[in-house]
């Protein structure tokens, strides 16, 4: 691993070097809630000063730049009984992600496993993922962050460089030669032992700030044991079935396909929309039979996929503990509370 130290002013220089010829996406303040608290989102950024590098959590994850909510998978030109299909992966230039938290990079790493690491890699995702230059940035744990329980509070790979704020300078971890070469364009120094000490101090202070947690001990077994538990029904009664948890989740990737014929009947398209297993027709088959007709069975399924099935397949859960789903859920359904209730730890 290669480390560097850069002054804070050098980060702006780095931004300018990149923004000259590349699209940059980063965290910005997109509004204020009714209590005047900042609401953050990822947006295209042209000016370094727009960036809110001290952001908490964006309401929506970085997912849409890799897995758009709506995406044309193919278009068809119709010609009598024949047709021509054109496939487009919908990306033609690399882009820079300037300031992604560890949880969100971990989320991409999880998506990589399903969407790039399997027998059938998904080009729509791979094309975007491979063309993203990612600069990670450290963060301040919020009350809803349980990333530490999910092993996602630090990130080992899946980015180009990662910066940690040491007050007047950044500690930089370099993971790609693109990043290495890029850093030659700004003033970057080898870290001193005192920088190492300060870095370790910063992360040990950060560790103390986590308040939310999820006990994942034996969770796959417990979920199987408690499959018929009434707690699912209680959460199901609260659930709006609106799909928001999946939409704000950085790791939810399931989708639906809609094909449409253009009104002049000369063309058609195949459109992919990110879906949610909480939606009523998710498990419905032709003829109308629904394998999960009740809200509670769908909500339960979402937890089983994330905390049992995925663990079975990849030895890790499909959750990074970013807490977005709990924050966005109007019905206040949060992962820590659901899991602790399934474990019988009534609060």
């Amino acid at each position: 691993m290669i480390f560097r130290i850069i002054k804070k002013t050098e980060l702006e220089k780095l931004f300018n070097v990149l923004s000259d010829e590349n699209r940059i996406i980063g965290p910005v303040e997109v509004g204020r809630d009714q209590d005047s608290q900042a609401i953050y989102g990822f947006r295209d950024v042209a000016d370094f000063r727009q960036l809110a590098l001290d952001y908490t959590t964006t309401s929506l994850p970085a997912k849409k730049y890799f897995l758009p909510y709506k995406e044309d998978m193919a278009t068809f030109r119709i010609d009598g009984k024949d047709w021509q299909k054109t496939v487009d992966y919908n990306i033609d230039a690399p882009f820079v992600f300037f300031g992604m938290h560890a949880c969100d990079i971990n989320a991409l790493n999880k998506l990589d496993k399903v969407l790039m690491g399997s027998v059938y890699p998904m080009p729509y995702y791979a094309a975007k993922r491979q063309n993203a230059f990612i600069i990670g940035i450290d963060c301040e744990p919020q009350t809803y962050c349980f990333c530490r329980s999910m092993g996602a509070d630090t990130v080992l790979h899946g980015f180009d460089m990662f910066i940690t704020d040491l007050g007047n300078r950044y500690f930089v971890e370099i993971q790609s030669d693109t990043a290495y070469n890029l850093l030659k364009k700004v003033r970057a120094e080898e870290p001193l032992e005192s920088d190492h000490v300060e870095y370790m101090h910063v992360i040990s202070e950060k560790k103390k700030k986590f308040t939310a947690q999820v006990d994942t001990t034996d969770l796959t077994k417990i979920l199987d044991m408690e499959f018929q538990s009434d707690v699912w029904k209680q959460w199901g009664e609260k659930c709006l079935g609106c799909g928001t948890c999946a939409n704000v989740c950085p790791t939810c990737y399931c989708y639906s396909i809609e094909e449409n014929v253009r009104i002049d009947l000369k063309a058609a398209n195949k459109n992919k929309i990110l879906y949610s297993c909480n939606l009523i027709d998710f498990a419905e088959v032709a003829g109308g039979h629904n394998f999960r007709p009740e809200r509670h069975s769908r909500l339960k399924y979402r937890y089983y996929h994330k905390h049992r099935g995925f663990v079975e397949a990849y030895e890790e859960s499909l959750c990074v503990g970013c807490g977005r789903c709990g924050e966005a859920c109007l019905a206040d359904i949060t992962v820590p509370e659901v899991i602790s209730s399934v474990r019988g730890e009534t609060s």
């Binding site: 997109v30 509004g31 809630d33 609401i39 989102g41 309401s59 929506l60 849409k64 909510y69 709506k70 709006l240 079935g241 609106c242 799909g243 928001t244 939409n247 704000v248 929309i273 990110l274 949610s276 939606l279 009523i280 027709d281 966005a328 109007l330």
Partner: peptide
């Protein structure tokens, strides 16, 4: 068959609540 929230999130809106 799903509610407006699905489209609202896809459009990147801030939740009005």
């Amino acid at each position: 068959r799903y509610p407006v929230c699905m489209e609202c999130k896809a459009n990147g809106n801030i939740c009005l609540f």
